[in-house]
């Protein structure tokens, strides 16, 4: 049985686990291809170099191979794999003496409003704290994910992600680039669901602002 015949294996845990347990190397190669990118992103939050992160991911896969018989199906296989990764990443991070205080939300880090306050009316306005005529968002010329815009948006977003504070970048990347659930991200990073949302919110708001700046470039009211 080829991996193509199985379709998207990541969506069918029971079948996938059966195939892995029966030693189906195609199925294994497929999940390595599908899940390694998100694991690498997650690993980067525990260790300080890309090389280390690669090692963490490889170790996690090896641990997964060895532990496959212990998987009980109480979570999805992906979530279980992420828990393995988190354990390996944390102990590696401790050895590297890398301390990333994911659990506390510092205000020094990007604690800015989602939108420039100058784009809203004052509190004593007839329409308090509503958009001013000039501050009001205007539609982008085309959706940023549309093909003609896609390359440009991707470049903008790659730069934007790189410039986000680390924890915002990690959360936005895991959620929106790699498609992890809020529960998976909270567990990976050891943060509360609320903190996870705050980081996601700050990161997404900034990136929207960046695309706006790009798409509505030259419009003087659109400054940050």
């Amino acid at each position: 049985m080829s991996s193509e015949a199985g379709g998207d294996l990541s969506g069918n845990d029971a079948l996938l686990v059966d195939r892995l347990r029966s030693g189906d190397a195609d199925a294994f190669a497929e999940i390595v291809r599908t899940w390694s990118p998100m694991m690498l992103q997650a690993a980067r939050s525990y260790v300080s170099t890309d090389a280390s992160a690669q090692e963490v991911v490889q170790e996690a896969w090896l641990a997964m191979i060895r532990g496959l018989d212990k998987f009980e199906g109480r979570s999805s296989l992906r979530t279980w794999l992420l828990a393995i990764l988190a354990n390996i990443g944390r102990s590696r991070g401790v050895r590297e003496a890398r301390t990333l205080p994911m659990s506390s939300l510092g205000s020094a880090e990007g604690d800015r409003p989602a939108v420039d306050p100058n784009r809203f009316r004052g509190s004593d306005d007839k329409w308090p704290r509503n958009w001013t005529p000039l501050g009001k968002p205007r539609p982008w010329p085309r959706p940023p994910e549309e093909e003609v815009m896609a390359a440009e948006s991707r470049t903008q977003l790659e730069h934007g992600l790189a410039e986000l504070p680390e924890r915002q970048r990690t959360v936005v990347a895991l959620r929106d680039v790699h498609g992890l659930s809020s529960e998976e991200v909270s567990a990976l990073l050891g943060i509360s669901a609320g903190n996870q949302r705050v980081l996601l919110h700050r990161g997404r708001s900034r990136l929207r602002g960046l695309l706006e700046l790009h798409f509505v470039a030259g419009d003087p009211v659109m400054g940050t």
Binding site: F28, A29, R33, P37, Q54, W61, E145, D176, L207
Partner: peptide
């Protein structure tokens, strides 16, 4: 739209060699 566009940002992964080694 920003979220959808983020879904198309290229990602890095393990090298082909590392993936083959794991398999």
């Amino acid at each position: 739209a920003t979220i959808r566009a983020l879904g198309k940002v290229p990602v890095s992964t393990l090298s082909e060699a590392a993936q083959a080694e794991l398999t």
